[in-house]
Computed example of a mutant assay.
Amino acid sequence: MSKTVVIGASSGLGRCIGVGLATKGAHVALLARRIERLEAAAQEAGPRAIAVECDVTDDVSIRAAIDRSAEALGGIDNLVYTPAIGPLVRLVDTEADAWRRIFDTNVIGAALATAAAIPHLTASEGKVVYLSSDAGTYGPPWPGLGAYGVSKSALERLTESWRAEHPSVGFTCLVVGECAGGEGDGQTGMTTGWDMELASKTFPLWVSRGCMPGKVMPVEDLIEVVHTILSTNSATSMPMVIARGAPGGAETLAN
């Protein structure tokens, strides 16, 4: 059975993916800051899952959490990085602290977690999946989500850079379109804390620019995409996979 670390697993897509992989038979370490939610997720996932507290903005916390996960799982075959923050704010109003918070979580945390796990992933010739977004390089810029989109573009470049330095590990950037589903803490969505007045002004711009294709991918389909990526041989893994909704179900494109 695969030994998988899922970071950002206390809520949203991260929780859905972590619980979903465990139900598919993986031994899973669920990592996040909110330990109570994380323990609830581990209980839902079943006996193959453990909860490990981790702050992705703290290098010491990340390394300790990865070490604990590797010890508990008996190694690490896969790493899935899902944390992201995406405040709705115009670039002209995005202050330095906001830029730092976005990059600390969306990019730097991914780099630090990978660095901590790379000895284990090299030994297992394992795989890494980073969750990206249509707001990154793949899609058009989203007004109001400029800083978020820039961070996702950086994450996509980070994927390529890790592949160049560690070719025996399979690195994939998974670009996720609109995705919905889940219940309770597992419910998807990133609009918490948004300025709804600004949202009402930017939404028509997103539609007119083609940012929102109007097709929603069920979260169950996304879990299956992640499971499929992790089930492939690292030597044949793809640097980018695009997962988005389609009229008849999930559409998955690969580059």
Rank of each mutant, 00 (worst) to 15 (best):
K3A: 08
T4N: 05
V6D: 04
I7Y: 06
S11N: 09
L13N: 12
L13V: 13
R15A: 06
C16F: 06
I17Q: 10
V19E: 14
V19R: 12
L21V: 05
K24P: 04
H27K: 13
L31I: 15
A32K: 07
A40L: 12
A41S: 14
A42D: 01
P47C: 07
P47G: 14
P47D: 10
P47I: 08
P47R: 14
P47V: 15
R48I: 08
I50Y: 12
E53Q: 09
V56F: 03
V56S: 03
V56W: 04
D58T: 06
E71I: 14
N78P: 01
P87D: 05
L88Y: 04
L91D: 15
E95F: 01
E95Q: 12
I102K: 06
L112C: 07
I118M: 09
T122G: 11
E125Y: 09
E125D: 09
V128Y: 02
Y138E: 11
G139K: 05
P140A: 00
G144N: 03
G149H: 03
A154P: 03
R157Q: 15
S161C: 09
S168T: 14
T172H: 04
L174I: 12
G177M: 08
E178L: 12
T188D: 01
G189F: 06
G189I: 03
M190G: 00
G193L: 01
G193D: 05
W194R: 10
W194P: 00
F203K: 12
V207P: 05
M212V: 09
P213C: 01
M217C: 03
P218S: 10
E224M: 08
S234N: 01
M238T: 15
M240R: 13
I242C: 05
R244Y: 11
A246D: 13
L253Y: 05
N255Y: 12
